[in-house]
């Protein structure tokens, strides 16, 4: 069956508008969840890239002069090492600022056994290079140790990974809920139009022809509702993205969407329309097959 008349065989009643609204809400939430996941994934990749090959050397010594001598010797050795691309001592004043919230005005007291810090970037992400640098640092004595920044930032990375998985789970749940809503709507439509469907069958209509009427109707509702929901969600994502960028945080600012992410978000309504069509078709054909 084709033509405008085919579309009118099933009356456009209130159920259609309700379905449109439900699809709008579903897609709004789905696009937000997907955007959160994609942005977090981008931020995590950025964090990994920043932390990979970055290490911090600590020299802890109660004697400030011995500490500074050891730190200076290590700095020279590190700068001479081919495994180190860049080594930079952390300014004690900067360390004092960082400790200020915990130690108060005493943070800058030279008598405090605050460690000397050296930030360094490895020449490569190679684990062997990190091992050689760690061995080099150990030559500075028992008071010198090295931390890979990736290690102490790993809880942050784990949290971000969890957020990505949570977003993916939310999208999957929304897809399942959408399919369930479509199946319920299709069954309700079958009940509502039972008499018309019976007449169509008696006139020689196949199950597929009847299913196509429902598919067309549900695809229209899902397309309109899903499109509206997705556009609203995209506007929210864009606004929130702008606000995050304004925070000036390197980590939060990295949580942004690239072109490919926006393409994925744009494809979500189409995917949900496709899902709705398949769910409607299976529900309708399944129900009709139980009749003669």
């Amino acid at each position: 069956m084709s033509g405008r008349a085919a579309g009118r065989v099933l009356d456009e009643a209130g159920g259609a508008r309700a379905m449109t609204a439900v699809m709008a809400i579903m897609l709004f939430l789905t696009v937000l969840a997907a955007a959160l996941g994609l942005a977090t994934a981008t931020a995590r990749v950025s964090l990994d890239r920043q932390l990979a090959g970055r290490m911090t050397v600590q020299v802890v010594d109660g004697d400030p002069e011995a500490r500074d001598r050891t730190a200076a010797r290590l700095l020279g050795a590190l700068r001479a090492s081919p495994d180190v691309a860049r080594a930079r001592p952390v300014d004690p004043a900067q360390i004092a600022r960082l400790l200020g919230p915990w130690l108060g005005a005493e943070a800058g007291d030279a008598a405090l056994p605050i460690p000397a810090l050296i930030d360094l970037d490895l020449a490569s992400d190679d684990a062997a290079a990190a091992g050689r640098v760690a061995a080099l640092v150990r030559t500075g004595g028992p008071n010198a140790r090295v931390d890979a920044q990736a290690a102490w930032m790993s809880p942050v990375g784990g949290f971000m990974r969890s957020l990505v998985w949570l977003s993916a789970l939310l999208v999957a749940l929304m897809a399942a809920a959408t399919a369930a809503v479509v199946v319920l709507a299709a069954r309700a439509g079958l009940d509502q139009h039972r008499a018309t469907i019976e007449v169509m069958h008696m006139l020689g209509s196949t199950d597929r022809q009847v299913a196509r009427l429902f598919q067309r109707r549900i695809a229209t509702d899902a397309g309109i509702g899903g499109g509206a929901g997705a556009i609203a969600a995209a506007a929210v994502v864009w606004l929130v993205g702008g606000q995050l960028g304004a925070l000036g945080s390197q980590l939060v600012g990295a949580a942004r969407l690239g072109l490919s992410d926006w393409i994925v978000l744009a494809l979500l309504p189409l995917a949900f329309v496709g899902l709705a069509i398949v769910a409607a078709r299976r529900a309708v054909v399944g129900a009709l097959e139980r009749q003669l």
């Binding site: 069956m1 084709s2 033509g3 008349a5 085919a6 009118r8 065989v9 099933l10 009356d11 008499a195 018309t196 019976e198 007449v199 169509m200 008696m202 006139l203 020689g204 209509s205 022809q209």
Partner: peptide
């Protein structure tokens, strides 16, 4: 061809579209 006792016309279709229904179903 079937003429039902209670007509069973599709209420949302015009008279012409009801008459055309078997032809549309037949493709």
């Amino acid at each position: 061809g079937v003429v039902f006792q209670d007509f069973r016309l599709v209420p949302h279709l015009s008279a012409a579209d009801n008459v055309a229904l078997p032809l549309r179903i037949a493709g």
